[in-house]
Amino acid sequence: MDALKSAGRALIRSPSLAKQSWGGGGRHRKLPENWTDTRETLLEGMLFSLKYLGMTLVEQPKGEELSAAAIKRIVATAKASGKKLQKVTLKVSPRGIILTDNLTNQLIENVSIYRISYCTADKMHDKVFAYIAQSQHNQSLECHAFLCTKRKMAQAVTLTVAQAFKVAFEFWQVSKEEKEKRDKASQEGGDVLGARQDCTPPLKSLVATGNLLDLEETAKAPLSTVSANTTNMDEVPRPQALSGSSVVWELDDGLDEAFSRLAQSRTNPQVLDTGLTAQDMHYAQCLSPVDWDKPDSSGTEQDDLFSF
């Protein structure tokens, strides 16, 4: 819950932080000083300027060897085509990944977070970031790969997607708890209302004896509580940590079903599988986004697919 609360507080303090972009060759504004600060901008989305290598189908939802083989196929196909790589912007948030063309600003792909089953910074092609997700059109699994400016960037994108998945799962947990509370309150309110109706004398007997209905007592009954809980029953509950912020979080049926399955089948359902080692994760978390744009010590960066 700490990640969720800190993310909400950060967004309320400075929503404009989320509009910064990394990996864009110096076009961005001043960047936060450390990885923790940038992680807090996830709610509205972190932007990464990358190059799209392509996509291939895979048979399993996750796995280092599986993704490595898929990336190898994608890279080989991209090299064989001889075409310049498409420059894209990857927007990562707890909602998922939005992929747009840098030149036309046209939407290429919009992947809900619950469809993503794996992401990684490839070991062999260490400047490549990739994720595996279920197609929104059918049940097939797709591996999408992107060329980053350097290994640090690939690791940073991988960690960002993993963190977005974690925050999304926490949102789901909060929403589920809130819905259970509202359902319980609604049920209790309905029981109270039913009890009051059972003990209320029939209207005919009131008229016969000349008694008047006590409207004041009726007004004191917990009807307002019942209506408050039943009027918006169809509205999706939102985490309290975000009250007053500009973010509107809505959970669709697909996300609810997917996270429910994860909660039942996995020990740590909030953790998205990645190909990063503990050492890689520690190294990337210690980086400032400013470091992502620094040239690798191995030599001059080449803006070309064939540089790796």
Rank of each mutant, 00 (worst) to 15 (best):
G299Q: 04
S16Y: 13
E59C: 09
W172A: 01
L193E: 00
T56G: 13
G275S: 02
E33W: 14
V167T: 00
P222G: 04
V192T: 08
V207Q: 00
G54D: 05
S260H: 05
S67H: 10
K5N: 04
L212Y: 07
L4A: 04
M55N: 13
A263S: 01
D234R: 03
R196T: 07
D126C: 11
S224C: 08
T274W: 01
M124R: 14
V161A: 05
G26Y: 09
Q279K: 12
V111F: 12
L107P: 14
C148P: 00
N211T: 06
S297H: 13
I12N: 11
V207I: 15
D280S: 07
K123R: 10
D296W: 01
S135E: 10
D293A: 15
T104I: 13
V167L: 09
Q136L: 11
Q163F: 14
R73Q: 13
A145M: 05
Q106D: 10
G275Q: 06
T200E: 03
V247T: 15
F171W: 00
T104D: 05
T120F: 13
T104E: 02
A162D: 01
D214C: 07
A69D: 13
G275R: 02
E59H: 10
T56A: 12
G254P: 06
S81Y: 01
K84N: 10
R115D: 05
E44S: 10
V290N: 00
G54F: 05
A219W: 05
G96A: 04
F259S: 02
P94E: 02
A76Y: 13
V58N: 15
L305K: 09
R196F: 03
E217S: 05
Y118G: 02
L251A: 00
Y118Q: 01
L206E: 07
T225P: 13
A78R: 02
S260K: 00
W22D: 10
K294P: 00
T267S: 09
K184W: 12
A168C: 12
T231W: 07
V157W: 02
P269N: 04
Q285T: 00
Q106M: 12
D234V: 12
N229V: 10
A133R: 03
P94W: 09
S307M: 07
K51F: 03
E177Y: 06
T120A: 13
K176W: 13
G96V: 12
K79T: 08
A195W: 05
A164G: 00
G23K: 13
L50F: 14
G96W: 06
E177S: 12
L85S: 10
E180A: 14
S16F: 00
A208S: 12
D296G: 00
D191G: 15
A241C: 00
S175G: 01
G275C: 15
G299C: 07
T230I: 05
F129Y: 09
H144R: 13
C286F: 11
C286D: 00
F129P: 13
R27I: 09
S93P: 11
A145N: 05
I74A: 12
T36L: 12
V92K: 07
A18R: 10
S260L: 00
K62I: 09
N110Q: 14
Q279N: 00
T231K: 14
G190E: 09
F146K: 03
S14K: 15
E250G: 11
T225F: 07
P222S: 10
A80H: 05
L203E: 06
A69L: 15
V248Y: 01
D280V: 06
R73I: 09
K5D: 02
W292N: 06
K30M: 13
E257N: 10
G54Q: 13
V192Y: 01
L287A: 02
G190I: 09
V167C: 07
S93Q: 09
K220C: 06
E177R: 15
A164P: 05
L251R: 09
L272H: 06
Q264L: 00
R151Q: 04
D303R: 05
W35H: 12
L31Y: 05
A162W: 08
E33G: 06
D253C: 03
K220H: 07
E178L: 02
R29P: 13
L213K: 11
C199S: 11
V88H: 03
Q136I: 11
E217C: 05
L287K: 06
A258Q: 13
S112K: 00
L107F: 13
G254R: 02
T230A: 05
G189L: 01
P61T: 10
Y283L: 09
T56R: 14
T104W: 07
K179S: 04
L42A: 11
K62Q: 15
D291F: 01
K184Y: 12
V290P: 01
Y52D: 06
I116T: 06
Y114A: 02
T274E: 08
S288L: 15
D256G: 07
L11V: 13
S117K: 10
E250P: 02
H144Q: 14
N229H: 03
L90R: 09
E109P: 03
L147A: 03
V290L: 04
V290D: 05
D252G: 12
R73E: 10
E64R: 12
T89I: 14
L57P: 13
N211F: 03
D183W: 06
D296P: 00
G23N: 03
T300A: 10
Q264C: 04
K150A: 02
A76Q: 09
Y118C: 00
H144W: 12
F146N: 03
K5H: 06
